[in-house]
């Protein structure tokens, strides 16, 4: 253990001195910039890892600090507390906070054009559409109950007709048939389930009326006012990272075996599956991270159906235009 640590430290020092050697050629000093991700390190954040590793942020003059997420981490809290400049969030949560509590947030970009959250079930006991959920047991992470209730309402289903239980991040109860379906990233869990020798099927909440983005890029109004140039730089470098990632979705995850994905407890094969599955959910004719007028309208419409009345002003597309 000590050996590897020392080697790591040595490599780190070597890399740092190599970076320092290039410093005199830079025209400006790097600005410290921190982003708060929505979850632990997985392929969901591949574009940012590339932009960090390949120096896209550095070239934009950003000295990036990347914070991983977790169950108790509310990404919005990190930017309110001033510990990060920018956070990746779920738009339903963010918009509800702006509406209900007057939280000073602006959405300046969107990673997923279609929210990857969906209903996953076994092919042997398939749930193919919201109506199939009636009378069934659905496991939902408590933080996502808001999304499920929205989808059910949009499809004219009384939430009381579905037995909703907490999802504790482990698909074992689904594989064993204790629950009929679970709510999770469709880019991820079907692979895990297939590894257990069982076939999974899934549908996106997006395809049944809950037309919202996910991993929306959220900043406070204050950051937007004071760090606008850095935010545009961040968007530009991140888009470049995602462009690079999807040139070959199989290429990057194996490279991070000993860095970004070291010790996450997940497999590289799982990340490759994830990276391929998320491509169609992220692509936009306007480029990665984009927010189109139709997209924003679809978000607002879906949310208003469930009583969250956001407005166009909560989204700021002008930074994307400056890329």
């Amino acid at each position: 253990m000590r050996l590897t640590l020392d080697r790591r430290r040595f490599l780190g020092t070597a890399a740092a001195s190599a970076a320092a050697a290039t410093l005199p050629f830079r025209t400006r000093a790097a600005t410290p910039f921190t982003m708060q991700a929505a979850w632990i390190n997985d392929a969901e954040f591949a574009g940012y890892f590339i932009a960090i590793d390949e120096g896209y942020y550095g070239a934009e003059g950003l000295d990036m600090t990347y914070l991983s997420g977790g169950p108790d981490v509310i990404p919005e809290s990190t930017i309110i507390a001033g510990r990060a400049d920018l956070a990746l969030t779920t738009p339903d949560t963010t918009i509800k906070a702006i509406v209900d509590q007057g939280a000073p947030f602006k959405i300046i970009g969107a990673q997923y054009q279609k929210n990857p959250i969906g209903i996953v079930s076994l092919a042997s006991n398939p749930i193919n559409e919201p109506k199939d959920l009636i009378g069934k047991t659905l496991a939902v992470p408590p933080v996502n109950v808001i999304s499920v209730n929205a989808m059910l309402a949009l499809n004219g289903i009384d939430p009381a007709d579905v037995n909703i239980v907490p999802y504790a991040y482990d698909p074992t109860p689904l594989i064993q048939g204790e629950i009929d379906a679970s709510l999770d990233f469709t880019t991820n869990v079907p692979y895990t389930i297939s590894q257990q020798g069982v076939e999974a099927t899934s549908f996106l909440l997006y395809d049944f009326g809950f037309t919202i983005y996910n991993d929306t890029v959220v900043v406070t109004e204050e950051t937007l006012a004071t760090k606008r140039a850095e935010l545009v730089s961040w968007l530009r470098a991140s888009r470049k990272g995602w462009d690079e990632n999807f040139k070959d979705p199989n290429l990057w995850p194996p490279k991070w075996k000993d860095t970004w994905f070291a010790g996450t407890g997940r497999t590289i094969e799982n990340e490759i599956f994830f990276n391929n599955a998320q491509q169609p959910l992220m692509e936009s004719p306007a480029g990665f991270m984009a927010m189109t007028e139709e997209g924003i309208e679809a978000n607002l419409r879906a949310l208003s159906e469930v009583g969250i009345n956001g407005t166009r002003e909560m989204f700021d597309t002008t930074l994307l235009e400056e890329i």
Binding site: A168, P171, T192, G265
Partner: peptide
Amino acid sequence: EFGGGGRWGLGAYLLGSLGRG
């Protein structure tokens, strides 16, 4: 560690491993 979003620690490892079933 389980909830706090760090990369290292048995709690973080547990969280990442839970999804594998």
